[in-house]
Design a binder for these strands. Sequence first.
DNA 1: CTGGGGATGGGGCCC
DNA 2: AGGGCCCCATCCCCA
Length: 613
Amino acid sequence: MVSGPLALRWCVWAGRGDMGPDMELPSHSKQLLLQLNQQRTKGFLCDVIIMVENSIFRAHKNVLAASSIYFKSLVLHDNLINLDTDMVSSTVFQQILDFIYTGKLLPSDQPAEPNFSTLLTAASYLQLPELAALCRRKLKRAGKPFGSGRGGAGLGRSPRGQRLSTASVIQARYPGLVDGRKGAHTPQELPQAKGSDEELFLGGSSQESVHGLGRPVCPASGEAGLGGCSTNGSGGGCEQELGLDLSKKSPPLPPATPGPPLTPDDPAQLSDSQQGSPLSASAPPVANSASYAELGGTPSEPMDLEGAEDNPLSLLEGPGGQPPRKSLRHSARKKEWAKKEPMAASPFERREAAPKGPCPGEEAEGLGDRVPNGILASNAVAGGPYGEPSYPCKEEEENGKDGSEDSGQSGSEGGSGHASAHYMYRQEGYETVSYGDNLYVCIPCAKGFPSSEQLNAHVETHTEEELFIKEEGAYETGSGGAEEEAEDLSAPSAAYAAEPRPFKCSVCEKTYKDPATLRQHEKTHWLTRPFPCNICGKMFTQRGTMTRHMRSHLGLKPFACDECGMRFTRQYRLTEHMRVHSGEKPYECQLCGGKFTQQRNLISHLRMHTSPS
DNA sequence: CTGGGGATGGGGCCC
DNA sequence: AGGGCCCCATCCCCA
């Protein structure tokens, strides 16, 4: 029953009650930790994702819970944790995570030595008393006051007022996550925490052990990942609220010590914290990610991450175990997605494109006081040292590239022409959003390019493009656009015309019942899209659409079919899907009597009737 | 091989 | 913000 070393131990405990030195493996705990850390770096058995700024870290709940009561409460219910980026930056969190898993404080790759003020703040926030004490001792020794954590030497986060001067470049930290090529550590690449004794503890050697790559770097501030690039903040800044369900559930826990104004006890803030900088390529999470969808998993599938190492597709499956072909399809879709997005996302194709140009008021409701983007953002360029912005746009999508898979080859339209600094900008408010290698951004269209040459080449195409848009706008203004289009095959507008709709779009002829909806609609005429996906950089006109899109990245599929276990990102899809099981075919073709489970298939069918061939 | 149908994913947009 | 519904695109199966 019990044998081997275990039996030996058991005898020791049961019999003698004390353990002689010969009965104890002195390195057991060390080895165990080492193993855990290795597993973490490989993403093996990781069951929780921690999002800091836009970096994603994978870890083990047990380890986190054993280290911090804060984490203990968080991981209890959540598989995805968003940390307050005001309290801890991704770089600092990387150090902290390393500390948790190694008991050693490894230097970040940016500063010469750990920034103890920052660490102290973060350790306090995360309720890691030992680390906090360590930092305090270090600070004391260095003669630095403790309380400066959030100040100058603190998190490095620029005050809101200084947003413009920080964060210009956000190097793509997630490309590894996205395309699996860059920045992503393979398990081999990820150095393990060396068990050697010479490994530094506090402030020791400067070698980059575990964190060699992908540290968040703020070129502007020169501070490593201290949030300098992130200007989130409750309320402002670059970070885009993802609004993911999972984040909302993060249990509130007040920060322990230096009590910054931040209130982690506000779920909304936790949610906010997932805005921000690019996803970390340094984070173990990406180490074994063949696809970012793997990062998914739903709240109800805590172990989704398991097995990802061996079966990248596994995480895409519902608990019911979709047929293999399903997952293959899904996989194929993921690839195909990049090709297809351009079409769907193109504002020039389906939209009642209007010649309004970038709308200054764009971010009014979504991003508060941020400088929106586009032209306005270009002003910001003059105001601060923007390095290499990165900001893709619709056109990028049109080109069949959305940064998710081929960020490296984006903007391959060749390079010539003159560099125009005016075409480089950073979209204020999104400075921590990175879109692969596209650091050179065209202001008018916000398209990102990996090189100035490519940007220049692109800039020259703008004349035609703008003309095109104007024509579209003129055309669309004259007659209904998508609405008519929609009326072709379905008649959703019966009630549409019935109610009074006093709010009329100034660009097209559409009317709305309330000003909010009108405002929302008018955004569709803008040339820029205010809501970027923090993972792939795709731009959206509506926050909700972006949030929904994010769910697909993260594999969040809250709606499960009771029958087969298949999961969906949208309730509507589930409803639709349920007809597969019920056999209900509510949509009937009036021409041939054919019945369909889905309206869209009826529509498709009707086209067959109406098409000339 | 081709076309139709079933099913699904993603984005746009309105409520 | 989220739900709902629209569209497009696509894959797979099958006749």
